[in-house]
C-alpha cells in the first residue's frame, strides 16, 4: 500500500467530499472485514486492485494515491462486493463516485477519454466497425441506426459531460 502522507492534513475533507457525492454516502460504514476483497474477481487475478484497500485509503484520506493510481479504474462493476458487504457499503458505487472525482480533477485513463470522444461524436462508446456490422447480421440483428445526436448533445451538455476533459495521463 502506498504511504499515506495526506492522512492528517486532508483526511477529513476528502472523506467528507466522497460522502457527499452520489454513490459515496455509505463509505464511512466500512469496518474492513475484507468480504469485498474475497468476493472480488479482479483482486483474485491482479495485485493492482483490492476493493478493501481502496476503501481503506479513502477513509484515511489518501486522495492523491487513489485519484492518481490506476486501482480505481480496475473495478469491473460486478457488484459481488456490494451484495455481500455486511455494513451495506455501496462499494461499487463508491468507486463510481471516486472515478467522477478523479475525472473532475482531470485524471482520466485513455480508454475513458476514447469512450467519451466516441459518445460525443457518434453517440456510441464503442465505434461501429465492418466486423461488428457483419456479426450483427450473422446473429440476425437489424443494422444499428445512427444515434440522435442533437438530443444526445443536449443531454451531454446539460449534465456537463461535454466539459469533462483529462488534464494529464494517470501513471
Amino acid at each position: 500500500m502506498a504511504h499515506g502522507k495526506t492522512a492528517k492534513s486532508s483526511g477529513k475533507t476528502f472523506l467528507e467530499e466522497v460522502r457527499h457525492m452520489l454513490g459515496g454516502e455509505t463509505l464511512a460504514s466500512c469496518y474492513q472485514c475484507g468480504t469485498c476483497a474475497s468476493s472480488c474477481p479482479v483482486a483474485r487475478v491482479s495485485e493492482r486492485f483490492n476493493p478493501r484497500e481502496v476503501i481503506r485509503q479513502s477513509l484515511l484520506g489518501e486522495k492523491e494515491e487513489i485519484l492518481f493510481g490506476d486501482a480505481l479504474w480496475l473495478c469491473c462493476s460486478c457488484y459481488n462486493c456490494q451484495e455481500r458487504c455486511p455494513q451495506k457499503v455501496e462499494i461499487a458505487d463508491v468507486f463510481y463516485a471516486l472515478r467522477n472525482l478523479a475525472i473532475r480533477e482531470g485524471k482520466m485513463p485513455n480508454i475513458y477519454s476514447e469512450f467519451s470522444a466516441g459518445l460525443m461524436s457518434e453517440g456510441k462508446i464503442v465505434p461501429m466497425s465492418k466486423f461488428l456490422e457483419k456479426k450483427r447480421a450473422d446473429y440476425g440483428l437489424p443494422p444499428l441506426k445512427p444515434a440522435n445526436m442533437d438530443t444526445l448533445r443536449k443531454i451531454l451538455s446539460a449534465t456537463g459531460f461535454d466539459k469533462l476533459k483529462k488534464k494529464e495521463e494517470p501513471q
Binding site: 475484507g34 468480504t35 469485498c36 476483497a37 474475497s38 468476493s39 459481488n80 455481500r84 455486511p86
Partner: peptide, 15 residues
C-alpha cells in the same frame, strides 16, 4: 488459544 496453535485469519469469508 494462540499458544495452542490455533490459527487466526483476519478476514470475513465471502463464501
Amino acid at each position: 488459544a494462540r499458544d495452542m496453535g490455533i490459527k487466526f485469519v483476519k478476514g470475513r469469508p465471502t463464501e
